[in-house]
Structures are given as structure tokens and as C-alpha cells.
């Protein structure tokens, strides 16, 4: 295992060392010390690495992640795992706003709470939050799944497309075109798998499912004639 202490090395040096593993992997396990809320830690990884960040991280931690498995042993600022393509990102504490924004793939697990706009414009990522999420989460979410074991804030799933949203607790309000949907056997199966992958012990039958009513402009075939 290789350890990089951010009290001694810069973020640029850390990220370059991790990027250098993309072509030929010489070290799989990495530990990052003294993150102290710095931004852009472990961004743009493109290798099957295991990275442990020991402390709180700042903005865009593990952004654009591909293949790597990043664990933050603390809280993260806004935009954790934004635009992730694959791999996993696990946050042991809380996440600020826009967690998993625009992410295309992989698994994001937040063991605490997530702030506003969790999963905004998500495009295929699976997000599992053990706590609660803030307002405008999954706004314009396109695909993937968002699982919330606690409560969801105002305007959940506003203007969303095909994300599967599962919430165990209260939903303060649903956004435009977002509705509660029937929980069928295939959804229980999907949710069971998501909870297992996230290592979260919850009963899938206690969740409600939400999705798009498909009533907004883009869903109306008649509007296609405008082009």
C-alpha cells in the first residue's frame, strides 16, 4: 500500500500519481492522509485502484471516477463522484449538495446524509443514501437508481426521465411530473440487489417507488413535429 500525505504533497501530485496507474498498474492500494477539506481529491481516476481518504474532503472528490474504488472516511463537500463513469465511491459521513451529479455509471454510497440536489441530472449511476437527502434531488435525472433510507426534501424528481427512485421515509414534496408508482416484483428484486451492493441492511418491502409520469413536453410525440 502506498500512502500520500497531503500535508506534504499537493493535490496535483496525488492525482498525477493516481493517473500514472492508468496505463500500467504498479500499486493497487492507496491511502490519502490529511485531506483537510481540500478540493478535487482523487479526481479522474482510470484504473482498478482502492483509495482510502482518511478525513474530510472538499468539493468534487472522486469526480469523473472510472473503475476505482474510493472510500472517504469523513464528510465530503459538494459534487462528490460528479460525472462518475464506473467503480464505487463510498462516503462514511455526510455529503454536501450535488452528490453524484451527472454520473453515468458506478455505485455511490453515502452512509450519512446528502444535501440538496443529490443525483441531479444523473445518467446511469446507482446512488444509495443511508440517511436523508435535500431538496431538488434527482432533478432531470435520466437513468440509474436513487435509493434513500431516510427522508427526501422538497421537489423530489422534478422533470425527471427514467431514474428509479426508492425512498423509505417521508418525501416532503414531489417535483413536477414525479409520481409515486407501484412496487412490483422486479422492483423489489432491483432494490434488494442495490441494498446488498451498498451493504445496507434494510427491508426492500418498506420502500416506496417514485418515477416520471411522462407528461411533460418532451414525452409528447405531437411535439416532435416542431423539429
Amino acid at each position: 500500500m502506498k500512502t500520500i500525505d497531503l500535508a506534504e504533497s499537493s493535490i496535483r501530485e496525488l492525482n498525477q500519481a493516481l493517473h500514472d496507474q492508468a496505463t500500467e498498474c504498479t500499486e493497487r492500494e492507496w491511502e490519502v492522509l490529511n485531506p483537510k477539506g481540500q478540493h478535487n481529491i482523487a479526481c479522474g481516476l482510470d484504473q482498478n485502484l482502492a483509495v482510502d481518504i482518511q478525513g474530510h474532503a472538499g468539493y468534487f472528490c472522486a469526480g469523473m471516477n472510472k473503475k476505482a474504488h474510493v472510500v472517504v472516511h469523513g464528510n465530503v463537500g459538494q459534487g462528490v463522484a460528479e460525472n462518475m463513469m464506473s467503480g464505487t465511491v463510498r462516503v462514511k459521513g455526510d455529503a454536501s449538495q450535488a452528490a453524484g451529479a451527472t454520473a453515468h455509471g458506478g455505485l455511490l454510497v453515502i452512509e450519512g446524509n446528502a444535501g440538496a440536489r443529490c443525483g441531479i441530472s444523473m445518467k446511469g449511476v446507482d446512488i444509495v443514501v443511508k440517511g436523508s437527502i435535500g431538496h431538488m434531488s434527482c432533478f432531470m435525472g435520466q437513468s440509474g437508481s436513487l435509493v434513500v433510507c431516510g427522508d427526501a426534501g422538497e421537489a423530489l424528481g422534478d422533470s425527471m426521465y427514467e431514474v428509479h427512485i426508492y425512498v423509505k421515509g417521508e418525501v416532503k414534496s414531489l417535483g413536477a411530473d414525479c409520481i409515486e408508482k407501484e412496487m412490483r416484483a422486479e422492483h423489489i428484486e432491483e432494490l434488494t440487489d442495490l441494498l446488498n451492493r451498498a451493504g445496507v441492511d434494510e427491508d426492500p418491502a418498506s420502500f416506496k417507488r417514485y418515477g416520471s409520469a411522462r407528461q411533460l413536453y418532451n414525452f409528447k410525440v405531437d411535439n416532435a413535429s416542431a423539429y
Binding site: K36, G37, Q38, H56, G58, N75, G93, S96, A116, H135
Partner: peptide, 22 residues
């Protein structure tokens, strides 16, 4: 505004840290 500004405070490692609600 950011956690970075709190890191020099004594005992911050074990402080209760949270984001204020809207």
C-alpha cells in the same frame, strides 16, 4: 463557507460537523 477554513481549530477532528439546512 468551506471546511478548509476550520482545519486549524483545536479539536476539529472530533467536532460535530454539519451543513446548515436551507
Amino acid at each position: 463557507s468551506e471546511y478548509q477554513a476550520l482545519t486549524t481549530l483545536p479539536g476539529i477532528e472530533n467536532a460535530k460537523v454539519w451543513e446548515p439546512e436551507p
